[in-house]
Design a protein around this nucleic acid. Structure first.
Lengths: 399, 399
DNA sequence: GGTTTATACTCGTGGCACGAGCATAAGGTG
DNA sequence: CACCTTATGCTCGTGCCACGAGTATAAACC
């Protein structure tokens, strides 16, 4: 609908501004001089571009702390009336949201427990949050970015087993404001957060794996996740790394999922499949240090996790692997077994310099931070900046 | 070395020219008017850009066949003295090479069998080919793109088991000419060819899998392969989809590789591991239709192949999967078993619209065509065009 | 207080795409 | 065969962007 006539040049003009804003985001608190160096910009261009972005209320300049000789430069920070993103996360028991500025800093955090876990009440609460932010920030609010523990296809929820949801249409959330809604899988977005500002920062290719009930994850290349057709990628738990004899609720056999979460622990311990595998896993982890059977079960699960990771490392050669959710305590509870299985699963030529497996840095905030990142990507795109500039035809002159 | 001062604008100026050349490559024989429509360019811009590219000897215009009313337009074709890529492929028994123009058409094909398979003689032959092309085409030759059945890391061969090579340094190949050398894995490049102009043309995400001795492959996103850290990705055969009891020569256990090639067939048939799994597989395939044991072995291997593919489809959600090498006849020999295993390995929600599994369109030429594509990517990059333009400061005026 | 250093500011230049108006080459029509 | 219709090419003035060279400035150093 928007791909009409020569939009080409209108957008292309913003290319350098996009890069500059991206640099500000990568290194919050960066100075104008440093940005110019990074982007190979002449000082004249830097002056002009920052002036433009200042007039457009995208950036502000503040005197930079003096470091040695030379004329002082200034720190580039988001403009106090610049564009904002509302990022939100829906989890099994609760929801959270925050408003983020161009540098990725968040504020105005809200959170709450679901009164009912049904889609209707949850969406109504979220809709009120969106409308509230829209009223509070008005045109400064440019996008809503939502993380859900769900299979997402073409911007819609296909299924969210942890919430017990089937297909859910979310377009109503932003119907009142007309804001763009960006929907993402929580594990995918947590991976984005790690690749941008977490343990995998700077990695060309990063693999993030998150164990909750089953395994989710994402391969992030150049900071962008591989989402596949319709955005349904990332179902790493359903690769047949496991015992072919075990059937998975997904319909396939031998899924990795079934080997690495609470259900697997229960199987190893000869117990019934737990109703809440997440809590059950925490319980078993808690007694693993003094209960030999629990320890063996945890070790088996940690090994299965590491073996699969090694296979993925063989195939994709990430620079780094990050672990989120229960994957962290699982490894921590059986580090020797994990490391042995990881090394044993790697091809010989990879063992000299195996991809490091690191704990996720964002912890439980990964999905929300990833939603912020993706939302900011959207509002700092060439097209979005062009629109922002057009909306404010005669910006307030700086006196 | 080239990242000096403001190279930024120098390169950015070529952005539209790059897109125009890419469009010509995507649709060979496209007219100027059609390109302008595709790229949302005004007719004035199209006139100017094509004039520029004509003066720079990148494109030629020829009257387009008249179609209905209206002023006739012209077909954009590579300039007869425009830039060229030398693409080459080194296989187990022989080598091939060809020279390609900007539209991807190849000519001047040369080929030969290895006199000796040792790196030295092979490289010497290739070096002569490169030097010959350099003498024949001079500055028109802009890059050499090489496909090898090898693990490639940071532009070097780490290991090429089918050739019996260890680490090999190839920089000598272009030492005389000073041309950029682009090295790629054959399976990866075959995947690129499929994603660009083959069975996966137009797919956002494509998975290409190639069975020869073991499995190679690539995930291609937006026409570009995921090569991972150092370019060592694509070792799909070493994901633990197989029997954990089987050790793989790579050092790991349960590798998919071991389940899907001639060694697996021999195991199913209770025979010794074949010295040449490729030829052996062809033999078994030949008698599978009338030899029940061979048929069962082929069916088992086809199932193992399909199960792994399903797992990869679950994880990555490609739009399409393409099969190269022996994967094609393996599936063809046991289509029912293949389809059953593929469907059975998919998550339920994927079964409604499973990613189609197609035979590769490029056949044995995939790697060479992929090398052409990657080479052309290189010489039509913004930086390369800027360099090409600088080299010819006063282009011959068109009279 | 002068020098050094790093950066900012100014301004003329060149390059690109746009858009509007005009030109042109074909088919179609009476 | 003259004229209309249609699709496209060509020209040129405009706006925008980044560059580069020269100049100005604010701090540290001596």
């Amino acid at each position: 609908m928007a791909s009409d006539r020569p939009e080409r040049a209108r957008n292309a003009r913003w290319s350098t501004a996009v890069d500059l804003l991206a640099q500000v985001r990568r290194e919050p608190g960066i100075t104008r001089a440093a940005v110019a160096r990074r982007l190979n910009l002449s000082t004249g261009s830097a002056t002009e571009i920052t002036a433009r972005l200042r007039d457009l209320r995208l950036l502000t300049e503040a005197p930079a702390p003096v470091r040695g000789r030379g004329r002082p430069t200034s720190v580039l920070t988001p403009h106090p009336s610049g564009p904002l993103v509302l990022a939100a996360e829906v989890r099994q028991e609760d929801w959270r949201c925050a408003v983020a500025t161009l540098d990725g800093r968040t504020g105005d955090v809200q959170a709450g427990r679901h009164v009912s876990r049904e889609p209707g009440p949850v969406l109504e609460t979220l809709g009120q949050v969106v409308d509230g932010a829209w009223r509070r920030y008005g045109e400064r609010l440019r996008a809503v970015s939502l993380a859900v523990a769900a299979t997402v296809c073409d911007g819609r929820i296909v299924q969210a087993s942890s919430l017990g949801w089937g297909p859910v249409d979310l377009t109503g959330l932003t119907a009142g404001s007309g804001l763009p809604l960006i929907l993402g899988n929580d594990a995918t977005l947590a991976g984005v957060a790690e690749a941008r500002t977490g343990s995998a920062a700077g990695a060309g290719t990063a693999l993030h794996l998150l164990v909750e009930v089953g395994i989710g994850g994402a391969l992030i290349v150049g900071g962008h996740p591989l989402t596949g057709a319709g955005g349904t990628g990332g179902e790493y738990g359903h690769m047949p790394f496991g015992d072919r004899g075990l059937r998975c609720p997904c319909g396939a056999r031998g899924c990795w999922d079934v080997e690495v979460d609470g259900r697997a622990l229960a199987r190893h311990l000869g117990e019934q499949p737990p109703a809440d595998p997440h809590t059950y896993t925490r319980q078993v982890l808690g007694r693993a240090s003094h209960d030999a059977a629990a320890g063996r079960a945890v070790a088996a699960v940690a090994s299965a996790l590491a073996t699969g990771i090694a296979g993925l490392v063989n195939a994709h050669a990430p620079d780094v692997v990050t672990l989120g959710g229960l994957a962290r305590p699982l490894r921590a509870a059986a580090p020797a077994e994990f490391d042995a299985a990881y090394a044993g699963g790697l091809m010989t030529f990879r063992r000299a310099r195996p991809a490091p497996v690191l704990d996720a840095a964002h912890g439980d905030d990964g999905a929300l931070h990833g939603a912020v990142a993706v939302g900011l990507d959207h509002i700092t795109s060439e097209a979005a900046l062009a629109t922002w500039a057009d909306r404010r035809p005669t910006p307030a002159p700086t006196v």
